[in-house]
Design a protein around this nucleic acid. Sequence first.
DNA 1: ATTATCTATAGATCTATAGATAATGC
DNA 2: ATTATCTATAGATCTATAGATAATGC
Lengths: 208, 208
Amino acid sequence: MSPKTGRRSRQGLESRLRIIEATFEIAAELGYAGTSIGKVSERSGLPASSVYWHFANKDELFAEVIQHSFDEWNASFADPVPPADQREQPDILRQNCRHLVASISSSPEFWRLGLMLALECQAVEPTARRRFLEIRRVVLERLADFWRAALPPPSQRQNPELPGRLARFTMATSDGIFVAAQAEGGGDLEALAELLADSLEALACRHG
Amino acid sequence: MSPKTGRRSRQGLESRLRIIEATFEIAAELGYAGTSIGKVSERSGLPASSVYWHFANKDELFAEVIQHSFDEWNASFADPVPPADQREQPDILRQNCRHLVASISSSPEFWRLGLMLALECQAVEPTARRRFLEIRRVVLERLADFWRAALPPPSQRQNPELPGRLARFTMATSDGIFVAAQAEGGGDLEALAELLADSLEALACRHG
DNA sequence: ATTATCTATAGATCTATAGATAATGC
DNA sequence: ATTATCTATAGATCTATAGATAATGC
């Protein structure tokens, strides 16, 4: 039924995806400015002109790369276990903190790309930049949802801004942990993630 | 006495400094890959060949830029008020947390540059990269010193690793806050800094 | 003689396009 | 006729150097 089921069209979509994935891998390490169409062409195995057949320019290529990596992350991001019983709440909260940290560090490439683009804002061109900022807002919303589900309702009634603030803190601290893991070779990612879970828990309990 | 006091030599040092500062400003926004000698030349007002007279290549230019920005940050970084009295400790700890956050956010350019280079590690060439990693270790040591002075001695005897862990957490969280401030336009830097101070305090108290 | 700057340019790489070629859809 | 890929290349920008020029130091 769909006009896009022929062999030729399918191969076109596959090439498009290969270009997106190649760009994604390079950009997560080198950023927007460091990612050239030549490198993308080399890694994807397609000539540079094929990149321009699938995407209008570097700006739009990046906009699609951002969208694609977000879609993948979003699909793998799990919801928290809601607090069921009043008594076991501290345990569930602690468990959900670990759970959240694990979920974030399971797709580090997406976060690395976001970090690069956030910092390189002057270098990133308009379309890609707009898309990135939209996605960042959606991720924050997703994190706030997590906290709304994970925090005990009474503490939210008392302080309605708490999930939003914790969401921003979660994002900021996760960012910092990825930077540290990157700078130190990645061996200590777990120890820092542990520390993040601790501090999220400490903050959530204190304000909750 | 010094052979470097003549007008000519002094002007040479001034040009060198102008190149370093121009590179620093551009690199904090665009990263290593996005900073071209052409842009440095334009912003500093000196021709590209002058850049290569003062520095062997882009790699060494960046090594010097990193060193210079660290020296400035290090000089402006203040020591904590040590805990004097047993009773007023919580207040002093809280005060020192604010103090630390303020000190870090007073020279954001240094942190921004460090963030860019940490993430772009594949793009940054050997000399600059080695210098950057050294400096990062020194900064961590400086933060650990801060916590050794700021935390009450008994809690340190009980948990000797605490200052080091808090130092790494301080660095990670500061990094995250700069990313957030950058992505969101900078208006909310203060609110996040507040949140960071809160969490440092919560962690320090809990583990202390 | 040394130090610093300038003009000019080599050679590599970058973004992007033109236009030929080949495979599918109708 | 449409979709996708290829070769080839234009024109800009990039890192880096050669070599002339001018100001200081001795």
